[in-house]
Write a protein that binds this DNA or RNA. Structure first.
Lengths: 155, 155
DNA sequence: GCCGTTAAGTTGATGCATCAACCTGAGGGA
DNA sequence: TCCCTCAGGTTGATGCATCAACTTAACGGC
């Protein structure tokens, strides 16, 4: 125990740093844009997209949470805030007394329909357009690879 | 105006989704580890590393903020919290009455010296080890490319 | 039918991120 | 010297993320 730490060598460190910096900058800019353009936070956006695209506007609470890979507590708080702003509503579930449906309200549908095209445009402009199709697919494959690797790692 | 949105085609969408999912998962796991291992938040870690590695443990407030590319307000809040926990201290600046130095306390030095090797180990285990050296350097280059592209884009 | 266990979801506390407004001291004319 | 502007930094409000503790209803065994 207490083996000497295997520090990153310069190439590794450069790659790691660029990767982190890039992602942070990209996400920062995208979420500020989406907020400024549409008044939705990045989290609002994720919830509304999932709800409308994959659930037709109505989904069981935990299904939604699993779909976006959030903890239930995070989703619960998020839904509370969104409900307060009229973007979604909670509905009782007839066949499970504990359960809840989350439903996108008309205002929610409208918000996401307005926000989505703009968001996609920014993703394209800031990210997709930076790379050739082949570079993009390489990046996608490398990401998959890291994902797979993480699945096999403890915690 | 209102040109039809250029939605992402399936390859683009897959690449984008993998990329986002990967990063989110990676960062989530790393920051939970660092927190559990050392009691430092990811932000604490960034501040302490920058302060000790690049400033010898003492740096002007705004230099620090610029170094890590944070807004001054974010840094100010962060420093306040860290000062409360004894990791850093504020010191007056003799030649600029408005200015402040941020200094890592002994506890701050110790905390980062303990946390850094573990953190690097996790970065290695979860990320670096997932890729061959050549894949890693490809990922680094693609990240640089996206970064450069973003620099040239408005906001 | 009762009971322990597990599933579904909420709640409160705390720390982090962002925005806008603010305060104070430095530097530079007129 | 006075005033204007700007740089350096703080503060308060609000929303988001995470953890732990809690409530309530469903399910399975007996």
């Amino acid at each position: 125990m207490d083996a000497p730490p295997r520090w990153l060598d310069p190439e590794e460190k450069d790659a790691w740093d660029s990767f982190i910096r890039m992602h942070e900058k990209l996400i920062g800019r995208l979420s500020r844009r989406i907020q400024a353009d549409s008044g939705l936070s990045a989290s609002d956006y994720v919830v509304l997209v999932s709800l409308t695209e994959r659930g037709g506007g109505r989904m069981r609470f935990l299904d939604l949470a699993k779909l976006v890979e959030w903890e239930k507590s995070r989703m619960s708080h998020q839904v509370t805030r969104m409900a307060k702003r009229g973007l979604v509503a909670r509905e009782e579930c007839p066949d499970d007394g504990r359960g809840a449906f989350i439903v996108a309200t008309p205002a929610g549908h409208q918000a996401i329909e307005e926000a989505a095209p703009q968001h996609v445009e920014h993703v394209r402009r800031l990210f997709i357009d930076a790379l050739t199709p082949s570079q993009l697919s390489t990046l996608g494959r490398l990401s998959e690879r890291v994902l797979d690797h993480m699945e096999r790692q403890p915690d």
